[in-house]
Amino acid sequence: MADVTVGVVVFPGSNCDHDTEHAVASFDGVRPLMLWHNEHDLQGVKAIILPGGFSYGDYLRAGSIARFSPIMQEVIEFARKGFPVLGICNGFQVLLESKLLEGALSRNRDKKFLCTQTTIKAVNCSTIFTSLYSEGQVLRIPIAHGEGNYFAPAEVIESLEEHEQIVFRYCDAEGNVSDGSNPNGSVKNIAGIINRQGNVLGLMPHPERASEKLLGSDDGRSLLESLFHHIAGV
């Protein structure tokens, strides 16, 4: 793989930034570059990852203050130019607040913070983030969130389905999508969505925490590898 640099944004309160840095650095030819929240220089990165955590303490609501940080002005412009942006957990929340993705996230259905292994199904493998998965593949990837209940108006959900923007759904170990396999109450069991242009993905599960077998699963590794292959032109 050709040498590429991937930006990892660090907000006050980020707690998965170094997990993400470690996962990115585990790929030959890929160099993570930590980008502080008050910077305006993206330093020539080829993709950006917004990691999980509690940006700005999740005051007001998750991701709502991070959306106005200086770095996000650059990330929004970067995305609008067609460059890849990946938002994980709190990063997904920031993408929604920034209007780079449609919908919103509310408190989990049972109003409890969830930190557990879960299973999700890859339902769109034609994206730059999922090209190394097979359609319907079941992935074991952990979640850790209190506000992961995805919802949107009916017309938005209909549009997401029509344009195949739903990328991951919560499911059971056999791949069955049901209310019982939905950990947080997300409409249609949605675990991750992509924008219409196909360059901005947000998901609640943590692929960086499932990037090597020592962590209990490496099912998240192919998501990162798919992205890195794309930006390296492999």
Rank of each mutant, 00 (worst) to 15 (best):
A144N: 02
S98Y: 03
L223G: 00
V4H: 03
S222K: 10
L215F: 04
I231R: 02
K188T: 05
G57E: 11
P51C: 09
L35Y: 09
T130Y: 03
P207W: 02
G53S: 09
S159Q: 12
L86S: 04
R196D: 15
L96H: 11
G202T: 08
L60E: 13
V24A: 14
T118R: 00
G202S: 05
D172S: 11
I143T: 12
K99F: 14
C115Y: 01
N195F: 07
L132F: 11
N15T: 15
V75W: 00
V6Y: 02
S106K: 02
I166W: 00
G175A: 09
K99W: 09
F113Q: 02
S126E: 13
K111N: 15
G57M: 10
Q43F: 01
Q137H: 12
G82Y: 00
T130E: 09
Q165R: 13
G216M: 04
G185L: 04
L227Y: 03
L50T: 11
A144I: 02
I76H: 00
N182V: 10
K111Y: 14
A2M: 11
V10F: 05
V177E: 15
E212P: 01
P12A: 12
L203T: 08
F228T: 03
D41M: 03
V75N: 05
M72L: 10
Q93S: 12
Y133M: 11
E161I: 07
G87Y: 00
C171N: 08
G52L: 03
Q197D: 15
V75P: 05
D19Y: 05
C171D: 08
I231S: 03
Q137L: 08
G53H: 03
I120N: 00
R61Q: 10
S159A: 13
L227D: 03
G202W: 01
S131L: 14
V85E: 05
G63F: 00
G192W: 05
V8C: 07
V187H: 09
Y150G: 08
M204F: 05
R221N: 09
I141Y: 06
R61E: 10
N124E: 09
D19N: 13
F11E: 10
G29K: 06
